[in-house]
């Protein structure tokens, strides 16, 4: 299976985080915000200019940039 990234998940679809290839500090911050390995999320919408992305994780809405989302590998659900 080709590797799926968070940025590939379409709006209103879900995914589960598998691994991140971000700088250690950045991925820890994501983890602390609840986007840990194994966490499921749903893509809610994109900002008017297409970036950043808004997702729903652990019951709240979080937005992150596309460049960072491209470094988060996920399983589409």
């Amino acid at each position: 299976m080709a590797e799926t990234r968070l940025s590939d998940i379409p709006i209103a679809k879900k995914g589960r985080v598998e691994k991140m290839t971000l700088a250690p500090d950045a991925s820890r911050r994501l983890g602390e915000m609840g986007l840990t390995r194994g966490a499921t999320f749903e893509v809610v919408r994109y900002a008017p200019m297409g970036d950043p992305i808004e997702i729903r994780v652990r019951g709240y809405n979080l937005s992150l940039r596309r460049v960072d989302a491209e470094n988060i590998f996920v399983e589409a659900l």
Binding site: L30, M33, P52, E54, Y60, N61, L62, S63, R65
Partner: peptide, 12 residues
Amino acid sequence: GETPMLLLELPP
């Protein structure tokens, strides 16, 4: 420096 990651909570 690295453009820092944006992590923005969108509260209800």
